Lab assay of single mutants.
Amino acid sequence: MATGGRRGAAAAPLLVAVAALLLGAAGHLYPGEVCPGMDIRNNLTRLHELENCSVIEGHLQILLMFKTRPEDFRDLSFPKLIMITDYLLLFRVYGLESLKDLFPNLTVIRGSRLFFNYALVIFEMVHLKELGLYNLMNITRGSVRIEKNNELCYLATIDWSRILDSVEDNYIVLNKDDNEECGDICPGTAKGKTNCPATVINGQFVERCWTHSHCQKVCPTICKSHGCTAEGLCCHSECLGNCSQPDDPTKCVACRNFYLDGRCVETCPPPYYHFQDWRCVNFSFCQDLHHKCKNSRRQGCHQYVIHNNKCIPECPSGYTMNSSNLLCTPCLGPCPKVCHLLEGEKTIDSVTSAQELRGCTVINGSLIINIRGGNNLAAELEANLGLIEEISGYLKIRRSYALVSLSFFRKLRLIRGETLEIGNYSFYALDNQNLRQLWDWSKHNLTITQGKLFFHYNPKLCLSEIHKMEEVSGTKGRQERNDIALKTNGDQASCENELLKFSYIRTSFDKI
């Protein structure tokens, strides 16, 4: 039985969820670079991206490699990797027998973001014989899940209580170790020597080791999670996991709180800001991140802002960003909400898709409305799209047979046209069989910064309504002859009103 693990408890099935942008060198404390989270699957090609990484700022997932063999891993080693800020997950990587050479110096898994409450997941690794993470000293947050690894031993010899604050939620089941077939031998045991430290858990006094050649490092209890030197002297209180010299914040392997210019500090002093819960960055760093993602459509890219001495992905609820200094300031009234469309555009074809934009005031991208039916549609669209004030790209209304009016965009005031449909149009209306009105132009103002209007096959939309939009939106004169079809717009509506004058002759039985 794995020490510190839980057996036999019912657990939810383990679901495996399925960018080499360097964020800056980590400095003297770390020998390499800070790398983003990685999802490495199918083959070993991307694994080489770990070569210079000291910190993975995010998670590391290595999974679904069915053609790899043990010899493929023999020359692979990433000794610079010290810390993973989120979680480490391995799933069905064939041929991998140990992690001792792959990650010989991995010391800390912070667990800032977890995989279903777990910071370390080893699942269905069919050839893994031992973990071998002999320098792993601290899992700051989260638990361990090690399950269905039929060859995995050296679990009962690990004292997880020396690595985690609590072992109650560890789930370590259905491994070879369960069948008591392992016969784990710690260093020196074969020669009758006791080389590794022994600890007591559940009444068992057991030597602690990761492999037959690597003991588990056990520091004096007084050192807590700070770690200790090879001689057993406690590291500085700002260290986490390990250090090369005692009581020196510049000799830590990793930091308990924050890293700044080669030393570990309790908090980031001005003019620095907390970033990702582990390091200090200056304003320029946060500003660069903001600008890199301002026009990016890459998933996970955030326009970072500053709030409460932190550089964070977005302002919290009730705050909006001051564009001059990136500071989050309290909103006066309802907060603006910028919604970034991942692929640059979004099609609204149902109430469900409209709900995804609920509360958005600025759309960074283009909207395509293609709704053919739905219950209580006008009210639903207004509830979900009615706060949109600005669209950076274009607005396209296409084959939306259920629409009679666009009044559900009740606050839309600006279409920038930074991206144009077919390279020309910022407003595009095609084949809307029941569209009769755009907006009530006596109450609604709309500016279209650039781009043209396109109207074709809107049989109940009168040309007068379209011409009014040209005047109000500032697009009059931009359109070419064929942009607004004269014969297919309003051709099934009563669009022309003329005053009919009647004269009559009164007659009676005795007068003409």
Results as ranks from 00 to 15, higher is better:
residue 116 F to A: 01
residue 201 I to G: 03
residue 147 E to L: 13
residue 78 F to W: 11
residue 86 D to S: 08
residue 78 F to Y: 12
residue 124 E to Y: 06
residue 125 M to G: 01
residue 109 I to F: 02
residue 216 Q to V: 01
residue 193 K to T: 09
residue 270 P to A: 13
residue 197 P to Q: 14
residue 117 N to A: 11
residue 112 S to D: 15
residue 200 V to S: 15
residue 142 G to K: 00
residue 323 S to R: 06
residue 138 N to E: 01
residue 109 I to K: 02
residue 243 C to Y: 01
residue 50 L to K: 02
residue 87 Y to E: 00
residue 112 S to T: 08
residue 102 L to Q: 01
residue 184 D to Y: 09
residue 137 M to Y: 05
residue 202 N to W: 08
residue 135 N to W: 03
residue 240 L to W: 00
residue 255 C to S: 00
residue 220 P to H: 11
residue 334 P to G: 08
residue 135 N to E: 05
residue 95 G to W: 12
residue 177 D to Q: 12
residue 82 I to Q: 05
residue 218 V to Y: 06
residue 93 V to K: 00
residue 238 E to Y: 07
residue 169 D to K: 14
residue 160 W to P: 00
residue 70 P to F: 06
residue 255 C to M: 01
residue 193 K to F: 14
residue 103 F to P: 00
residue 279 R to W: 07
residue 203 G to Q: 13
residue 305 V to G: 06
residue 128 L to N: 00
residue 127 H to K: 07
residue 185 I to Y: 12
residue 75 D to K: 14
residue 151 E to C: 07
residue 146 I to F: 09
residue 292 K to L: 14
residue 132 G to D: 03
residue 260 L to A: 08
residue 150 N to S: 08
residue 314 E to A: 13
residue 321 M to L: 02
residue 134 Y to S: 14
residue 157 T to R: 10
residue 68 T to D: 04
residue 213 S to C: 03
residue 153 C to V: 01
residue 178 D to G: 05
residue 178 D to V: 09
residue 176 K to A: 15
residue 240 L to G: 11
residue 163 I to S: 00
residue 215 C to W: 02
residue 161 S to F: 12
residue 283 F to H: 05
residue 42 N to Y: 03
residue 75 D to W: 05
residue 168 E to M: 14
residue 209 C to M: 01
residue 249 P to D: 03
residue 92 R to L: 03
residue 62 I to L: 14
residue 234 C to Q: 01
residue 310 K to A: 10
residue 148 K to L: 15
residue 235 C to N: 01
residue 166 S to M: 09
residue 35 C to M: 00
residue 133 L to Y: 09
residue 282 N to D: 03
residue 54 S to Q: 06
residue 89 L to I: 15
residue 156 A to H: 05
residue 324 S to D: 10
residue 299 Q to C: 08
residue 28 H to Y: 12
residue 209 C to H: 00
residue 75 D to V: 11
residue 130 E to Y: 14
residue 127 H to S: 14
residue 335 C to L: 04
residue 229 T to N: 13
residue 307 H to T: 04
residue 309 N to L: 07
residue 224 K to V: 12
residue 44 L to S: 07
residue 280 C to T: 00
